[in-house]
Amino acid sequence: MMRRLTETGYRWPSPVGQHATARLLMAMVLCALPGFAAADSTGGIEAALDACLDPAPSLTARIEALAASGWVTQGDTTAGRDRYALYNLMRRGLDSKPGDPKRLEEFNLIRSRPLQPLPDTGGQTPTATIMIETVEKRGLSGFQYELPDQSANLIVRLILRSDDVGSAIMQCDLMLGPALDPEMIATRVPPDGAKVTKDKRRGGPPKMTWRSIWVEGAADSFRLSLNHSDFTTSTAITALLADSKAKTPFSSVLSTGISPVPLR
């Protein structure tokens, strides 16, 4: 039976909470090997959901699946800046009143800056080799990917498990342009043989809506958490995007945590 994640010092992702290791992990995002992804982005969202929610695949298999479905390393793009700016504000507690000039100023300031840290060159085909070497050596690693059509962005943070150096805790933040059909979650959670230990919904119009799900594998074989933050119900966020004249679609963030994830 695997140790409970709380015993390893891991905290489940929160839609507005700060991760103690976030800044350090983001500073260690790695550059993938060259080679532009020729794959079509069709199915890219589904591939990201599988990568972040399926307890079975290794880290290598997850990254290979993302590459095959069209994900590439994050570049410094307008859409990327817009989503990362709203994502950062959301983590500080963004859901204020519509027309808040302070929030608009913060949003415009953040998105005016280059995305940091990033690989040397965006648009590279993802690979797991260097990432695995780094997490084994330092205990931490991570990556930032995007779909070529700019419909989504993905941040992944990895923490090597102290009780099993061949596996890691994997945290995802999937920033979505298109609205996520709830059925896409329902068909993946819980996986076969697992049970839902928590399923709560909060918020609703005119505020942001959250759904939080925790899942436990048979015989405590894995732990999975999922937080879906839906922006489409928030009049404040809708107004912010309109006031900023941002043309980037941004519907929600899916934050997940899963352990253990085999490295190979």
Rank of each mutant, 00 (worst) to 15 (best):
A65Y: 00
L30M: 11
T77V: 03
G43T: 00
L66C: 03
P55V: 01
T21N: 10
Q74K: 03
S58M: 09
A37K: 00
R4T: 06
A56H: 07
S58H: 04
L33E: 15
A51Y: 04
V16R: 07
A65F: 00
L24Q: 10
D76W: 07
H19G: 15
T60N: 07
G75D: 08
R11C: 11
R11E: 14
A67D: 15
L30W: 05
G75W: 02
L33N: 04
C31D: 07
T77D: 14
L49H: 01
W12G: 09
A37N: 12
T21E: 11
A56C: 14
A68H: 01
I45W: 04
R62K: 05
S41W: 09
Q74T: 04
Q74C: 11
T77Q: 11
A38I: 14
R23G: 08
I45L: 09
C31L: 10
S41V: 09
A37V: 09
P15E: 12
S14V: 02
T21P: 04
A56D: 14
R11Q: 14
L53F: 05
G44M: 00
G35L: 15
T6G: 15
L25Y: 01
P55L: 02
S14D: 06
E7W: 06
C52Q: 07
E7T: 12
A61N: 08
A67I: 02
I63T: 02
V16W: 04
R4M: 13
S69R: 05
I63M: 09
L49Y: 06
A20W: 01
P15T: 04
R4C: 15
V16L: 06
S14T: 03
R62H: 05
I45K: 02
F36C: 15
P13Y: 02
R11Y: 08
W71T: 04
T78S: 14
P57F: 01
G35V: 05
G35K: 03
G17F: 03
E46T: 00
V72T: 08
A20H: 03
Y10V: 13
Y10L: 14
A67H: 03
M26E: 12
A65I: 01
A56Y: 05
P34G: 11
A39L: 14
A56M: 12
A39S: 15
E7H: 14
A32M: 09
I63P: 03
T8D: 12
G70W: 02
S14W: 06
A48T: 01
L25V: 12
G75L: 10
Q18K: 11
T77I: 06
S14F: 05
E7R: 11
E7K: 13
A68N: 11
T60C: 13
F36L: 15
A37C: 15
I45M: 07
A56T: 06
M26S: 13
F36K: 15
S41G: 11
P57W: 01
P15D: 09
M28V: 08
S41H: 05
